[in-house]
Amino acid sequence: MSHSSHAASMPAGAAAHGHEHHTSLGIPNHKLATWLFIASESMFFAALITTYMVFRYRSVVGPHPDEVVNIPLTTVSTFILLMSSLTMALGVSAAQRGESKAVGRFLLFTILGGIGFLVIQFYEWWHLAHHYGLTWNTNIFGSIFYILTGFHKAHVIFGMIWLAVLAVSAFRGTLRREHAVHVDVAGLYWHFVDVVWIVIFTVVFLLTEAGV
């Protein structure tokens, strides 16, 4: 039998980070896993966006996409989300310099950007439901519109919770330089959610406006 002892005195996570240092590819495990997760999520959104493209003008009753999309409003929310990617990038860079408090501030701005985006997008949902009577039961465009943008919103919310947990630990000063990879992977995810939105914005809003 092996002689074992519980390492009660070891700081939590210290040993876990031990095996982060030597990986065969030189990429931290968390980062590689996040890239794979993003690859998988890309297929998820690709399937949803394909569904949108196939179904968008198949509705038997209106409203149809070209009657309802609100380009100016969505442009503002897109801009806010893009800016939150900038603050996210600044947060990652601060994490790599080990400036814990700065990381916290930048993450907070990023979360605020997410909130701004969501407020505008939820307002648009409300507007569509109340002024055009478009719900996900109305027609096939409504179904895919709400599901596609809804899953995107869910991803934004998940990302905000993730960033909030990191921000708390950053403000407490426990997010040290060696944990920069945690901010890094959260940033990858956040940029991904942003990129997905750019595609949705293009496909659902701009293409419709352009009449394509």
């Binding site: 569904t51 196939v54 179904f55 198949r58 509705s59 038997v60 009753v61 996900w136 039961n137 027609n139 096939i140 179904s143 895919i144 709400y146 599901i147």
Partner: peptide, 14 residues
Amino acid sequence: VFGTVFFDVFSGAD
């Protein structure tokens, strides 16, 4: 479960 119409042929589904 929620009554969307993705696969409702009468709503134009393919």
